[in-house]
Amino acid sequence: MGVPDRFEVAAGAGLGAVFAVAVAFQAYQVAGSWGAGYWPFGAAVAAWVCALALVRRRDPLWTAVAGLTVAALAVLVTRLVHLPAEPSPAASLGAAVLVGSAVRTLPARTACAVAAAGLAVVAGGLLVNPGSAVPVVSGLLWLAALTAGGGLRLLAARRRTVAERVRRAERLELARELHDVVAHHITSIVLQAQAARLVTAKHPERTAGSLAGIETAGSEALAATRRVVGLLRDAAPAAEGHERLGELIEGFESHGRRAHLRLDAEPSGWPPQVSSTVYRIVREALTNVSRHAPHAREVTIGITQHERAVTVEVEDDAPRLPARRYRRAGYGLIGMSERLEALGGTLTTGPRPGSGSGWSVRATIPTGEHR
């Protein structure tokens, strides 16, 4: 597991505070209505279930099993001993969190089994305490957990489906590279091989030159093939190359924001797939700023060329928000990540390094040649 971020820590702390208040309030109510000796059992059961709910991320299945087992045993104890109805509202709250988390994250059959176990605990409480309103509260919390967990599960499945569709579309587009980037190299090899056969028959002394031409064409074809790592893509038309970066920036600034371009590169020497990828990275990054960073006022676009790669970095100055990392990972960037992986490059997104605000998109695109 990775190190939890501040948002997750804050959410866990908030949930822990809700659990603590629920357990304390329940103990207070039981002590006032049943007497001072009746609250410790229910408070202990609720505390155990809520504590398991707080650590559910470590193992959603076994924490849910353990929490529901504690709740079920508490129901049996109330059957044998005259104690307040179980599962109590505080314990039911913790159990609902466990059930909702399991329904959201576990495989379908396992999630259904946990949901059924939660319903069994609720039904047990109703059977043991038929005239009490406490099991009814447990049932409502179980239903809320099932609804929330199922809804989040469906939403995550939809996001995965859309992301896979984006990746598939990018792969299909990559496949068209064969025609525009590699096919002309192969055609050149065939033509030069045919010419070499004729030249060899009439002028043997020119054979070396013909073979050198074939070797050059073959090397270029191999380099182009390696650049796309077998997932060949369609080089974008000239209308979507680096030449139109100026138009992108003008369109972005027309909405009242500033954009600065730092170009430390020689775009005229880039292969077509590098030129189009630079354009698309900048376009997607600016689109994300427009959609998801309404408070950003300035964007810096840096394009730097090294010996074998071009680096594109787009940074904005929007204030840092706790949930921003969830909103900024758009499906367009998923397609760009797929594209860069095919080209042997990398894509990283996240808070701007060394700053308390802003977001950064950084892409490295191999050119496949020395400078």
Rank of each mutant, 00 (worst) to 15 (best):
G241S: 09
E243P: 06
V289H: 02
E240F: 10
R257G: 02
L263F: 04
R291Q: 15
V289L: 12
T287R: 03
P267N: 04
P237A: 08
A239P: 01
A224L: 01
R227D: 03
E247A: 12
L286D: 15
V228I: 13
R262E: 02
V228Q: 11
R226I: 12
S268L: 02
G256M: 05
L231T: 15
G246I: 12
G256F: 13
S290F: 06
L222K: 10
L222C: 06
T287H: 11
T225Y: 13
V274G: 00
R227P: 03
L245T: 15
L222I: 11
D234G: 15
R226C: 12
L248Y: 06
L245R: 02
R283I: 10
E247Q: 11
H260V: 06
R262Q: 09
G241K: 04
A265D: 06
R262T: 14
R257D: 08
G241R: 06
H242F: 05
L286G: 12
P272K: 02
E247N: 07
S254Y: 10
L222N: 10
L232C: 14
G251T: 04
R258A: 07
G256A: 03
A224R: 08
A224G: 08
A259S: 05
E253T: 12
R258C: 05
V289N: 04
R280I: 00
P271T: 13
R226W: 06
H242M: 04
P271G: 07
H255R: 04
T287Y: 06
G241F: 13
Y279C: 00
T225I: 15
W270D: 00
R227E: 05
S275K: 02
L222S: 13
A224E: 14
E250A: 07
R283M: 03
H242G: 10
T287W: 05
A239L: 08
G230T: 14
V274N: 01
E247H: 09
T277L: 02
T287D: 05
A238H: 15
L231Q: 14
G241V: 13
S276T: 15
H242V: 15
T277W: 00
A239C: 08
A235P: 05
P267A: 11
T225K: 05
V278Q: 00
R258Q: 10
S254N: 01
G246S: 11
L286Q: 12
L248G: 01
L248E: 04
V229H: 07
R226E: 13
P271I: 14
E250T: 09
A265I: 15
A224C: 07
E266R: 05
Y279D: 01
R233H: 14
R227C: 01
L261E: 06
S290D: 14
V228P: 00
E266I: 09
T225D: 02
L263R: 10
A224V: 12
H260D: 03
N288M: 13
H242Y: 03
L263W: 09
L263P: 11
R244Y: 02
A259Q: 03
R226P: 02
L231N: 14
S254H: 10
E240D: 14
W270K: 00
